[in-house]
């Protein structure tokens, strides 16, 4: 590509894409952060996000309403996390086993239903969420980066301080963190540990479902069986890399999204590296982060431990 493209326009475009790409990751990461702080090591994020995207697709393809599509996405995400809560909090199944099983279930079911849905009529496309068309969007630089974003992107960013406030400034947040550190403390006070874990799971599932819904409505005009492409796993990595803190998770999500935005622009940038390398960049970054992290001690002490009253 010609050199004159190396100007502000590309940088602006990359930054705008970064924020857009961050949106589904942030929704999901803030939700799953709450789930994990409650002690549930939810491995079914990918499955919940995929289910959210699929439910949004079915809803918008049949009704044409983005609002209904987002509600369907939230509902689907909550169903997956409800199953996860039943398995882990009630039936005391190992958290990893439960999560992996749900991912397989979600991948299989969405594919099956998708085939059933399109058979005979072909794949319908839809008009998803369009960015707002207002004067601020025409501002130079800041316009495309900040104001030409969909309102859900702003909401995703707003979730970071909201979750922070919930965790660190409210009674419910304190008790939520206590669930991940030592649930027996709450149990000894007569607080229903299992009910709280359900609540935290459902919140995580709703947020991840919403992320999946945004993913399909903002980035696509049709459903693809691998539309989430590992984003659910990136969310899990971002939470670990972010040290289970809202701001840390925000930072990790930013890194992943920036790398993905670069990949989108790889052709334009013409760096001469294979396109596939760029596509793999967020995942390579996540591997590097995980192997080099030194702050696993910030992990909630009993994250992923099945809690049974009175066991050592």
């Amino acid at each position: 590509m010609s050199a004159d493209l190396y100007d502000g326009a590309i940088v602006v475009s990359i930054l705008a894409a970064t924020l857009r790409t961050m949106t589904p990751l942030l929704f999901s990461a803030m939700g799953e952060l709450v789930t994990q702080r409650a002690g549930i090591w939810n491995m079914s994020v990918e499955g919940a996000m995929l289910s959210g995207a699929f439910a949004a697709y079915i809803a918008i393809a049949t009704t044409g309403s983005p609002v209904l599509a987002l509600l369907a996405a939230i509902f689907a995400g909550m169903m997956v996390s409800l199953l996860n809560a039943i398995l882990t909090a009630s039936l005391k199944v190992d958290h990893f086993v439960a999560g992996l099983a749900l991912n397989l279930l979600a991948a299989g079911l969405t594919l099956f239903w998708f085939r059933a849905f399109i058979s005979g009529r072909g794949q319908p496309t839809f008009d998803g969420l369009a960015p707002p068309d207002w004067a601020l969007a025409d501002l130079p630089v800041l316009g495309p980066i900040l104001f030409a974003q969909r309102p859900l992107t702003w909401l995703a960013f707003l979730c970071v301080p909201l979750v922070w406030f919930l965790l660190y400034r409210t009674r419910q947040g304190l008790e939520l963190r206590c669930l991940g550190e030592n649930p027996a403390v709450l149990d000894f006070k007569g607080v229903n540990v299992v009910a709280r874990q359900y609540a935290a799971s459902l919140f995580g599932g709703a947020m991840t479902g919403l992320g999946g819904g945004f993913l399909i409505l903002a980035f696509s005009d049709r459903f693809l069986p691998d539309i989430t492409a590992g984003r659910g796993w990136l969310v899990v990595v971002a939470i670990i890399a972010g040290g289970w803190r809202p701001l840390g998770v925000l930072a990790a999500v930013t890194v992943f999204a920036f790398l993905e935005a670069l990949a989108i622009h790889a052709q334009v940038l013409g760096l001469g590296l294979p396109h596939q390398l760029f596509l793999a960049a967020p995942y390579i970054a996540s591997l590097l982060l995980l192997t080099h992290l030194r702050h696993r001690d910030r992990q909630p002490a009993l994250l992923g431990e099945v809690y049974r009253r009175g066991e050592r």
Binding site: R171, C178, E181, N182, V185, L186, K189, V191, P300
Partner: peptide
């Protein structure tokens, strides 16, 4: 039955009967 990662005050607060968010 204490949370090591919490402060003393947070530990005293956990599970106290009471309502409300703050």
């Amino acid at each position: 039955a204490l949370v090591e990662a919490f402060t003393v005050l947070e530990n005293l607060m956990v599970g106290l009967p009471g309502r409300g968010w703050r």
